[in-house]
Design a protein around this nucleic acid. Structure first.
Lengths: 340, 340
DNA sequence: TTGTAAGCGTTATCAC
DNA sequence: GTGATAACGCTTACAA
C-alpha cells in the first residue's frame, strides 16, 4: 500500500509474468479471457495505476504538448489555451504551459526545456520578430512538431494558424468609412510584427479603395495599454485637423483613447467613432459599448491543436505544412453606430 | 543527426563509459577536468539534450505539477495559473493544466490521469462541494502532494490556500453601511460552497455589528452571470421596500444588476451603491467604476506553489498541513462612493 | 577518477 | 496463450 503497485506486483500475485499482465491490461487479443479477468481484478485490488512515464520512455511519446505564450492571464491567450486543451485532452494529451514574458532568451530556453521533456509537440505564439527569427530557428532544428499561432513566423517546415488580420483591419476601416467618418486614425503596435502590420495594411487598403486620403499624422505606434492610448488620443486631438474616428489594433489602447475623448466631452459615436481589435470582454460592457474585431481565440486554439494532431497522425515522412487563416469577425457595437 | 543523441553516443565517441558521461554532465565532483570538458564539448557537438523522461523514470520525479481548474479562460484562474507558473518554472517544474468544466466525473478522471502521469503534485480549485467530497477523497489516497486553492475542501492531510472571504464580505458590507446605505441586498451563488458561504457570513455579521436588520428577502441566490444579475435586480426593485445597495459575491452577477438599474434610471452611487467581488478587469472601466473585493489571484497562485514546494522539500515523513489565508482587499471605486 | 551493472516500469520480439 | 529477455535513456552503488 505504501509503494505504488506495478505490473510485477500483479504478476507475482498471480504467479504469471509481467509480460502477460501487460498484455491483459492493453487488451491484447492474444490472451485468454480467464487471465485477463484475473489480471484486471488484481489490478483493481492492488490499486494499480499505469506509470505513463515508463510508457513514454519506452514508446518515445510523452503525450504532453507544450504551449508557449507571452502571458497566460490575458484573455486572448487564456482562451486559445482553453481551445487547445479541449481539443487535446480527449486524445490523451496533457497541455504544459509556459510564459515567455515577451523575453526572447526566456522563450528560447522554454522551448529547449520542452524539447528536453520530450513533448510530442510545441504550439507557440512567439515574441520573436522577423528581425531576430533566426535565433529561434536554431533551437527548432529537428525537434518535435512545431506550430505557430497568432504571433507567427514563417519557416518552410512550420505550420501556422492565424486569423485574417488584414481582412479584420480592412473591414473595421471600411465600416468606419461607411459610417461617414472622413478622417480615420489608426493605432498600431509594432511594425515588425506581422499581425499588426497586416491590420495596418487592411486599414490603408480600405482607405484607398474608398478614395480616402492616407494621412501619416493619423497613424500612431503605441504600446497596448490605457495610458499610451490616452496620450495618443490627446496628440491626435491637438492636431490642426483632428480625426473623427480611430481604428485601433488593440482594445486596450483604444480604451485609453475613449476615456480621454469622454473626458474632453467628445461624443461617441455621434462626433467620433471607434473600432478596436480583440473583442476583449470589457468592450461589450462599456458605455458606449465598443465595436471590435473578434479573433475567435477558442477556435484558434482548437485549430492549432487539430493541425498538430494531423501532423503526428500522418506518416512521419510526409511533412505537412499548412498555413490556416481563420476569419476575423467585426463586431459592431454602439461606439461606431452613428445611424439608427 | 537523424536520431537524438544519448549519453551512449557521447561515450562511444570518446571511448569512455556512459556513467562517466553522466557524471560529467551532472557536475559530479569526482571527475577530471579534462574528461568533463571533453564530454561537454562532444555533447555540444552532437547536439545532445538530456531526456528528462528517462531521468524522471529513474528518479521517480517527473518535475511536472498538475493544475486543475474549472475553466482556464476566466481571469481569476488564468491569473492564479500565472502565479503558479512563475513560482515553479525557476525551480525546474512544468505546469500541466486541465479544465474540469465544473463536472465532477471529469475532475476525478483528470486527477487520476495526472497521478498516472506521475506528476510531483496537484493543485486544484475543486468543483466538488462538501456534500460529495468523499467521492474525491478516494482518488486522493496516497497520491502525490495535493493542494487546494480558492475552492477548497478540508481534509486532515491536505493543505489549502484561500483568501479571507469572510473578511471580504464583512468589509464590503460595512463599507456600504458607512456610506449610509440602510437596506443592503446580497447576491449569493451557492450555499454549499464554502467560499460563498463565508462571504455571506461576513455580510450578515457586518449588518449585525452595526445593528442593521437582516432581511432574507434581500438575499438572492443566483448564477454568476449578467442575465441572472438582471433578473435578480429586477426582483429586488419590485419589492415593496426595495434595497438601496447590493453586495454581490460575484462581479458578473453585479454587472447585470448595474445594467438593469441604469436602465430604470436609478443613479449609482447617489441613489444606490454596489460592491462586487473578484475585481474583474472590467470593473474599473465601467461608468461608474465598480467597487470590488480583490482576490490577489497571482499571489494566491504563488502561495499555492510555495506551499507545494515546502511540502516536497521537507522530509517525506513530516506531513505538513497548512491552511494559508490571504487577505481580501476591498477596492473602493465610484459605485459605492456617495460622499466627496 | 573511471568502469560495471542493476534498476526505474513498460512494451515488443522472440521463443515455446 | 504465455514466458524470457531486451530495450527505452539515465543515474548510482559498488568495484577497481
Amino acid at each position: 500500500m505504501s509503494k505504488k503497485a506495478t505490473i510485477y506486483d500483479i504478476a507475482k500475485e498471480l504467479k504469471i509474468t509481467a509480460a502477460t499482465v501487460s498484455r491483459a491490461l492493453n487488451n491484447n487479443p492474444k490472451i485468454s479471457e480467464k487471465t485477463r479477468d484475473l489480471v484486471l481484478a488484481t489490478a483493481e485490488k492492488l490499486n494499480y495505476k499505469q506509470n505513463r512515464l515508463a510508457v513514454a520512455l519506452k514508446s518515445g511519446k510523452s503525450n504532453n504538448v507544450g504551449v508557449v505564450v507571452p502571458f497566460i492571464n490575458k484573455n486572448f491567450f487564456a482562451s486559445v489555451i482553453r481551445g487547445i486543451e479541449e481539443e487535446l485532452y480527449p486524445k490523451g494529451f496533457h497541455v504544459i504551459i509556459s510564459q515567455t514574458h515577451e523575453e526572447n532568451d526566456r522563450e528560447k530556453k522554454i522551448i529547449q526545456n520542452l524539447i528536453n521533456a520530450q513533448v510530442d509537440g510545441i504550439l507557440v505564439s512567439t515574441s520573436f520578430t522577423n528581425e531576430n527569427k533566426n535565433q529561434l530557428h536554431q533551437v527548432l532544428k529537428k525537434s518535435s512538431p512545431f506550430i505557430f499561432f497568432d504571433r507567427v513566423l514563417h519557416f518552410d517546415d512550420i505550420s501556422t494558424v492565424t486569423i485574417d488580420d488584414y481582412q479584420g483591419g480592412f473591414d473595421a476601416t471600411e465600416h468606419l468609412i461607411n459610417q461617414g467618418c472622413k478622417r480615420i486614425a489608426h493605432f498600431n503596435v509594432n511594425q515588425n510584427i506581422e499581425l499588426y502590420n497586416n491590420r495596418f495594411k487592411g486599414y490603408k487598403d480600405a482607405l484607398s479603395k474608398h478614395g480616402v486620403a492616407y494621412n501619416s499624422d493619423y497613424v500612431i505606434t503605441l504600446k497596448s495599454d490605457m495610458e499610451a492610448g490616452k496620450e495618443a488620443a490627446e496628440k491626435l486631438m491637438n492636431l490642426p485637423v483632428p480625426p473623427d474616428a480611430i481604428f485601433s489594433s488593440t482594445d486596450n489602447g483604444l480604451l485609453g483613447a475613449v476615456k480621454y475623448l469622454q473626458s474632453i466631452a467628445v461624443k461617441i459615436p455621434e462626433d467620433f467613432c471607434v473600432v478596436g481589435f480583440s473583442n476583449e470582454p470589457f468592450t461589450q460592457f462599456l458605455e458606449p459599448s465598443i465595436s471590435s474585431v473578434d479573433q475567435s481565440p477558442v477556435e484558434m486554439g482548437k485549430m492549432a491543436a487539430k493541425v498538430f494532431l494531423e501532423q503526428i497522425e500522418s506518416n512521419q515522412d510526409v511533412k505537412i505544412h499548412k498555413d490556416v487563416v481563420l476569419p476575423a469577425k467585426l463586431i459592431i457595437r454602439k461606439s461606431s453606430s452613428k445611424h439608427k
